[in-house]
């Protein structure tokens, strides 16, 4: 057993235990760790924003750059400054412009990406090809996938009553959804346990030195 002499390891270990104490019940140790975490994260976030965004992306190009195109940066700065209108009751409406700009730009950027990643890939993956029916098991597996995709889409059909064929298809779709959720749950829980193992290794190896 080789207990760590590094004070930072001790601080990290004590804070880990303070957070884990929440599993028993709310207590002053958890409250301390929670408020410390939140306060630090706000401060850290502000510093990261300043040094990773404002200084390299705005200040440095404007103050030290030579490219004439650097003055284009004044446009997003002006739009961004409108957000501060929220502090005035009279000018709070100004925030609508940066919001509209952000939502519009993000939608324009994400629509083609979503089409390609979520729709086209799904369509081409669902269309059964000769290769996908090569063996009986592969054929059964791909047929299940095909039925799963079609029935799940019908569950998300909102503008028709879920009655008759549509209703039956939607009910089948929700069965597929729940099966997928169950599989995903088990898979993710395993991943979370590996995070717990990592923390236990820190406590038992790095801090207490009980395990090698």
């Amino acid at each position: 057993m080789h207990i760590s002499t590094n004070p930072w390891v001790w601080i990290a270990a004590i804070l880990t235990l303070a957070i884990y104490s929440f599993l028993y019940k709310d207590n002053p140790f958890y409250k301390f760790a929670e408020h410390l975490f939140m306060g630090l994260s706000i401060g850290y976030g502000a510093v990261v924003l300043w040094y990773n965004s404002i200084i390299p992306r705005l200040w440095n190009p404007l103050a030290h750059g030579t490219s004439p195109s650097r003055f284009y940066l004044l446009i997003p700065i002006a739009i961004g400054l409108l957000s501060f209108g929220i502090f005035s009751k009279k000018y709070s409406w100004l925030i609508k412009y940066p919001l509209a700009f952000s939502v519009g730009a993000y939608a324009g950027f994400s629509i083609p990406v979503t089409f390609e990643a979520s729709i086209f890939e799904q369509i081409s993956g669902t269309i059964l090809t000769k290769q996908m029916m090569a063996t009986p098991w592969l054929a059964i597996s791909n047929l299940i996938m095909f039925v799963g995709v079609i029935t799940t889409i019908t569950y998300f059909y909102f503008s028709k009553h879920h009655k008759g064929l549509l209703g039956k298809s939607a009910r089948t779709g929700i069965v597929f959804l729940m099966l997928a959720f169950g599989a995903s749950f088990g898979y993710t829980v395993m991943a979370r346990i590996s995070l717990l193992i990592g923390r236990m290794q820190f406590l038992l190896h790095d801090w207490l030195g009980i395990i090698k």
Binding site: I119, I123, L128, K130, I153, Y157, S159
Partner: peptide
């Protein structure tokens, strides 16, 4: 938007269905 998206889904299901028929019949004819 919801109604339009529903029609979009029907359109996609149609494409998948047409693709499946074309792929299956195409493989048989090939």
């Amino acid at each position: 938007s919801v109604k339009g998206a529903d029609w979009g889904k029907a359109f996609l299901m149609g494409i998948i269905g047409i693709g499946v028929v074309l792929g299956t019949v195409g493989a048989i004819l090939q």
